[in-house]
């Protein structure tokens, strides 16, 4: 799965304060096509970016509902396909089948949550194609800005001014899909 979205510049920051400055300056200049890389989620960053609630919750809900339905359907079908009447009692029994439905709600809810995370976060990405700095997972921060070459030069200046200690630029275009010509 490729996450490469085209030419971009990566400005690496040593402190969170400078990173926040960088985000503020970009926002002030009306530049929106950027993402922030940090070793941990931090409330200062969230405060600047105002992220929307993640759609992962929808996956969890759908997975849970699927598991719940499967639990009832499986137990109902199993009993109907081989009815075993004991003491003249109804052979479809709600309490024990509810336990299976409850467990499968959790199981499929969890599996769908993982699927939702992978789908939305564009994971797994076994080869990192974007510019990356190995300090970013430990104690450095970065702003990654996407744009055309001219725009990247302007952003480079802004990132430098806000205290970026290192800049990595990648200007490869996204490979186009082959067109069939008759």
């Amino acid at each position: 799965m490729s996450a490469y979205k085209g030419p971009h510049i990566l400005g690496v920051y040593a402190t969170i304060d400078e990173l926040i400055d960088g985000i503020r300056v970009l926002k002030k200049e009306g530049k929106k096509r950027f993402s922030v890389i940090s070793p941990v989620p931090h409330h200062d960053i969230e405060h600047e970016l105002h992220p929307k609630p993640s759609p992962v919750r929808v996956f969890t809900l759908i997975g849970g509902l699927f598991g719940f339905t499967l639990g009832w359907a499986l137990t109902y079908y199993a009993t109907e396909s081989y009815p075993l009447i004991v003491g003249g009692k109804p052979y479809i029994s709600i309490p024990p089948y509810g336990i299976i439905a409850y467990i499968l709600t959790i199981l499929f809810g969890a599996l769908a949550t993982i699927a939702g995370l992978f789908f939305n976060a564009r994971l797994p990405e076994f080869v990192i194609k974007d510019a990356y700095d190995e300090r970013l997972s430990s104690d450095h921060f970065a702003i990654q800005y996407y744009g055309d070459t001219g725009e990247l030069d302007a952003v480079e200046n802004l990132l430098n001014k806000t205290g970026a200690i290192e800049l990595h630029k990648k200007i490869e275009e996204v490979p186009q899909k082959k067109q069939f010509v008759d």
Partner: peptide, 10 residues
């Protein structure tokens, strides 16, 4: 799995 710690990933 290609984790980079972008704000979207977090």
């Amino acid at each position: 799995l290609g984790w980079r710690g972008t704000d979207q990933q977090w």
